[in-house]
Amino acid sequence: MSAEAQIRNYILENYLFTDDQSALDSGDSFLDKGILDSTGILEVIYFLEDEFSIKVEDTEMVPENLDSVNNIVAFIGRKSQ
């Protein structure tokens, strides 16, 4: 499964409580759309650290890296290089 699909499925399953792929656009802002709050973002970070074997540094906790599926996919891509 691609990183994008993994992240999408995780968000759909745990925060939108559905497997309907049309419920989430990969560009949707998690905050603007009310999908995640601050504790939700922390849970997503723990998921990324476990699933992709990366360490999210405190200074990397910024919306540019984490506020949408697309942003996370790009962030993971940069971390894995």
Binding site: L36, D58, V62, L66
Partner: peptide
């Protein structure tokens, strides 16, 4: 307006 990014 939010605490989502504590370092900010």
């Amino acid at each position: 307006n939010n605490l989502v990014y504590p370092h900010r």
